[in-house]
């Protein structure tokens, strides 16, 4: 199942990239389509943050991991670089697991 997901994701990812290079520009130049494309990654990334921070199977939980992500948010607010943000989140969650 994992291999299926990997191959399908890779194939579609490439086709999406190639599509942009190959189709006539007018196809994607519609203002509404542009707006959709602008906000789509924002919505999906926000949703992924939510699921990965608060979801545990079908339950909504607030655990060590959630506090780690909260710390990551604070770090981003103070303009910490990406590796620092990720490491702080991991250290926080690991630290709480150890308690």
């Amino acid at each position: 199942m994992i291999w299926t997901a990997i191959i399908a994701t890779s194939f579609i990812a490439f086709m999406l990239k190639y599509l942009g290079q190959a189709v006539p520009a007018a196809w994607l130049e519609n203002a509404r389509i542009q707006k959709f494309a602008l906000y789509l990654p924002t919505a999906l990334l926000a949703a992924l943050v939510a699921v990965q921070t608060l979801g545990s199977e079908k339950n909504i939980v607030f655990d060590a991991r959630s506090i780690g992500v909260l710390v990551a948010g604070v770090a981003l607010f103070f303009k910490a670089p990406f590796p620092v943000v990720v490491i702080l989140a991991a250290l926080t969650s690991a630290g709480i697991h150890q308690l």
């Binding site: 579609i12 990239k17 520009a25 789509l40």
Partner: peptide, 25 residues
């Protein structure tokens, strides 16, 4: 499921089409 994993990933990949459109010319 593999299907939802691929769907979520592919929706995120749509933006690359728009980058390609910008880069082609």
């Amino acid at each position: 499921s593999a299907l939802s994993a691929v769907t979520a990933a592919s929706l995120l990949g749509i933006r690359n089409s728009f980058y390609g459109l910008r880069m082609a010319p």
